[in-house]
């Protein structure tokens, strides 16, 4: 008999020869109100128990401040603008450092993914350096750049750069080769190839890397500010420690978590979803 191919047409992804493309993400539909209720109940319970423990007076307030005093500190912090200034300064530093990191990281990653020589030289260096916790760069940063904004930016960049480089490189490597071949057949070459094929092809993975990079940047910034910066949320933490003001520490920590969650949920989760949907990588669960 003459063999006939019985390749089944693949559903969803148009360009997945041999499953070389990125795996499909199963992302749940927006959580129904019931789940929100459960979540809310859980956190309310935690706060309740916390308040109860404080009322029992097992630990003195300078060790464990009550939720009420933390809330009051938060309120006062926003009223006298000290927290607002802290948030503003930190966000500004973060945005500057992170933007540099994204532009640099994506550019380096694109080339690393495409050029074999770079991958074996620079790529291995990147893999090595990224194992270094970003806080380890603080001493070097202060020696090189003093105690100013540049040193902070440096710490933020170095903290988030590598994960973006590595994700971008990974995204580039997982573009189906047939897609790139096809682009060459269509006369897409040089810068156009990078801009119109490689970059969008790797974008879903790049966004994941950017999300990771953001949280890395956030952590590096807090570390740096805590150790040597003036103003900013990390600096407020340090102030709280010096003044023995535990409720200030807790208040600042709550703000840090809130900002982290907000950016993650409002910016990155939304961006990731919409890109994956557009790229056909999203399978809605019913």
């Amino acid at each position: 008999m003459v063999p006939r191919k019985t390749t089944l047409p693949k559903k969803g992804l148009a360009l997945n020869p041999g499953g070389a493309g990125p795996a499909k993400a199963h992302i749940k539909k927006p959580t129904p109100w019931k789940n929100y209720l459960v979540k809310f109940g859980f956190y309310a319970g935690i706060v309740g128990i916390w308040e109860l423990v404080c009322l029992l007076g097992i630990w003195p307030p300078h060790i464990l401040p009550s939720p009420v005093s933390v809330a009051l500190t938060l309120y006062r912090g926003f009223e006298d603008k000290s927290l607002l200034v802290g948030i503003g300064v930190s966000m500004q530093r973060l945005v500057i450092g992170y933007s540099i990191s994204v532009v640099l990281g994506v550019t380096i990653g694109l080339f690393l993914g495409r050029i074999k020589y770079l991958e074996h030289s620079l790529g291995s260096a990147v893999l090595g350096i990224q194992t270094l916790p970003s806080i380890c760069w603080v001493p070097v940063a202060t020696l090189w750049f003093g105690f100013g904004q540049v040193a902070i930016a440096f710490v933020v960049v170095i903290g988030s750069l590598f994960v973006i480089v590595i994700s971008t490189q990974d995204g580039v490597k997982h573009i189906p080769p047939l897609l790139v071949k096809n682009a060459r057949l269509l006369g897409i070459e040089g810068w156009r190839l990078y801009w119109e094929v490689i970059l969008p092809g790797a974008l879903p993975t790049i966004v994941t890397g950017m999300k990771l990079g953001w949280s890395f940047a956030w952590r590096s910034l807090m570390g740096g500010e805590l150790l040597f910066a003036k103003l900013g949320l990390g600096h407020l933490l340090n102030q709280g420690r010096v003044a023995n003001d535990t409720s200030l520490l807790f208040a600042v920590m709550v703000v840090i978590v809130a900002i982290g969650l907000m950016v993650d949920h409002l910016i990155f989760a939304v961006a990731e979803r919409s890109i994956k949907r557009r790229w056909g990588l999203l399978v809605e669960e019913h």
Partner: peptide, 17 residues
């Protein structure tokens, strides 16, 4: 490769984005 010769592959290789 040149634009005078175009290949159509077994699976449609379209840019998904």
């Amino acid at each position: 490769p040149g634009m005078d010769r175009i290949v159509m592959f077994q699976e449609s290789v379209l840019f998904p984005w």
